[in-house]
């Protein structure tokens, strides 16, 4: 009774048992459907296990390709087609050292964050998906999750709340690329006068996650995002009234009016991938030395800052690179 098998018709209902990699449990130590031996006999005496027919497994009932994180490859594909002209014609994104991003295995991508509505996240995600054909998951403030439409779209395109458990699972169990901006909203809230001066890298949480997951951190220095949507002033009291993290007045709004809310200036994007940082600590420790975490975090910040200064020294024009 309790193990009531499906009606016989269930076996023939769907001819396409589309395996969805996003919903598969890929953790080590998990038990697949075939591990009948591990089940203690006492339980089978009480309730028999479901009798799976090995020739025709029960069909997967999924209708869409939205994975457990909310990302949909189908949606990404559509957006990639729409966004590609912006990426290659408007921002003319130029990568250096793309080969330093691992082509398999998990890695935590870390970049500087700028612009009132930051253009850097889509450029990095699009660039890597286009060049390396690997999905990138972007961690962001969970504020997005509570915004209707935008939050859903953001999620379908590979964004998810920056919770350490999310990052760990993606990096460790699913070997994915995860992008994070350790400056968070501190980076995007800074005004044009403070451009390309990195803020504090949080509390080094990104280093701790990479250590725990046993993956490298790959720093990326991005030039162009500051000029694509420069912030002239902040309106903290208005932001507070609306319940948003910050509310900027941008040069785009002054120049383009209402269009400027979402319209970027055509700043030339240059992205430089720095050498991956491997940590020589064992993974999955309960705690890591705070001083070690902060030292590594600060070293990565310095690295990106130095690279930014060098890129800015060599930049002849904001618009043409």
């Amino acid at each position: 009774m309790a193990s009531d098998p499906r009606p016989a018709s269930a076996k023939t209902r769907h001819s396409e048992p589309a395996p969805d990699p996003g919903t598969e449990e890929t953790r080590p130590g998990g038990h697949g459907a075939g591990d009948a031996e591990v089940v203690p006999t006492a339980s089978s005496a009480l309730v028999p296990l479901p009798k799976e027919d090995p020739d025709s497994p029960r069909p997967d009932e999924r209708r869409g390709d939205v994975d457990e994180w909310g990302r949909s490859e189908h949606m990404r594909e559509i957006i990639r087609r729409i966004y590609d002209p912006i990426y290659s014609k408007w921002f003319r994104a130029d990568w250096h050292g793309l080969e330093k991003i691992p082509t398999d295995g998990g890695a935590l991508l870390v970049a500087n964050h700028a612009g009132a509505i930051p253009a850097d996240a889509p450029v990095i995600m699009h660039g890597i998906e286009k060049e390396l054909e690997r999905p990138v998951y972007g961690l962001a403030d969970n504020f997005f999750k509570s915004v209707p439409v935008v939050g859903t779209l953001w999620s379908r395109l590979g964004g998810l709340p920056a919770h350490p458990d999310n990052a760990y699972r993606l990096l460790k169990h699913q070997n994915q690329l995860v992008l994070v901006f350790p400056e968070g909203t501190k980076g995007t809230a800074k005004t044009f006068g403070e451009r390309y001066q990195l803020r504090r890298f949080g509390r080094g949480g990104f280093v701790e996650i990479a250590m725990r997951a046993g993956v490298p951190v790959v720093p990326i220095a991005v030039v162009g995002s500051e000029e694509a949507m420069p912030t002239i002033a902040q309106l903290p009291s208005v932001a507070k009234a609306f319940g948003v993290p910050y509310l900027p007045v941008t040069a785009n709004m002054l120049a383009l009016g209402p269009l400027g809310v979402a319209g970027y200036f055509p700043a030339k994007f240059t992205l430089k991938v720095l050498d991956p940082v491997h940590f020589d600590v064992p993974p999955d420790q309960k705690r890591y030395s705070r001083s070690k975490v902060m030292d590594e975090s600060e070293a990565i910040r310095e690295n990106i800052q130095t690279a930014l200064y060098e890129m800015l020294r060599n930049r002849e024009s904001v618009w043409f690179g």
Binding site: A2, V147, G151, T152
Partner: peptide, 27 residues
């Protein structure tokens, strides 16, 4: 549903519920 939201849900079937209770008990 709520306009603009499409969160992800998880379900467990009744039969698995009963089996899980008996399993936890037996083991």
């Amino acid at each position: 549903s709520l306009f603009g939201f499409d969160p992800r849900f998880q379900f467990v079937h009744e039969d698995d519920v009963v089996r899980a209770m008996i399993f936890a008990l037996a083991n």
